[in-house]
Design a protein around this nucleic acid. Structure first.
Lengths: 128, 128
DNA sequence: ATTTTAGTTTACGTTTACGTAAAAGTCAAT
DNA sequence: ATTGACTTTTACGTAAACGTAAACTAAAAT
């Protein structure tokens, strides 16, 4: 397997290294270290970072994202744990679904407003 | 027409009065005043507030929301202005569309992860 | 070998989006 | 009329999510 340095990741996702270290501070990502202490990020770490940034774009807080990440990488073997995880996941899935619906409504509204503006422009051009 | 007081709006949307006043500070909403200085909100003001809060849920900053609001209530009569508004609107529409697609992908991923967990649970239950 | 570049920790600074408290005026109800 | 709930402005406080700078070490390039 191959590793990324922190600045490589920073460049790939257009964030600062500070940001990535901050996510580590908050326990969202855990790169391994070289003997000298340099952080090395695996493909998996990269995927986690991608997830974090996507979550951010959707307006989730880092705490919420933290919870969602634990959904992905946790080894929940116990039955109770598994059930809890599923319940939590279903809850989050519902939230995401609602957000999609909400956004689609917004899109509709924007489209109708735009249509209105285009119509006005048409009329203006008819005058000239 | 009928008016709302600030606390009525605050209750309806489950935000603080401070929040609503802050949006006014930032120029996002402009209620009229009684002679004594009390704020009165129209249906339109209410709609704007609703828009602001929706924008927030999507992770837009107040500055971005401000721009988007101006799309709605501005009287852009000039042709140049109209064209600029349409261009801006198309841009924002594109962003929203991308977000929807992004969210739908997230939803897909969550569903497949959930399916995986459910399968694991099934197997565990088969053992007992 | 020695610059240059990149990485580390520590720590204080900053912005956004409000929370909270004080001091004073106003509205609604008893 | 006076209590109590509500509103106003002013102003300082705060949590989240980083930015930025210092002081230092390691890696890469010349």
């Amino acid at each position: 397997m191959n590793y990324y340095t922190i600045s490589q990741l920073a460049e790939q996702f257009d964030v600062s290294t500070r940001t990535i270290r901050y996510y580590e501070e908050r326990g969202l990502i855990s790169p391994i270290r070289t003997e000298s202490g340099q952080r090395l990020y695996t493909k998996k770490d990269r995927a986690v970072l991608k997830l974090i940034l996507r979550g951010k774009r959707f307006g989730f807080s880092l705490d919420e994202i933290h919870e969602m990440i634990s959904l992905f990488d946790n080894d929940r073997t116990g039955r109770k744990q598994l059930e809890k995880t599923i319940a939590y996941g279903e809850q989050k899935l519902k939230e995401v679904t609602e957000r999609i619906e909400d956004l689609m409504q917004l899109k509709q509204e924007m489209e109708s407003i735009l249509a209105d503006f285009r119509e006005r422009l048409q009329k203006l051009e008819g005058i000239e």
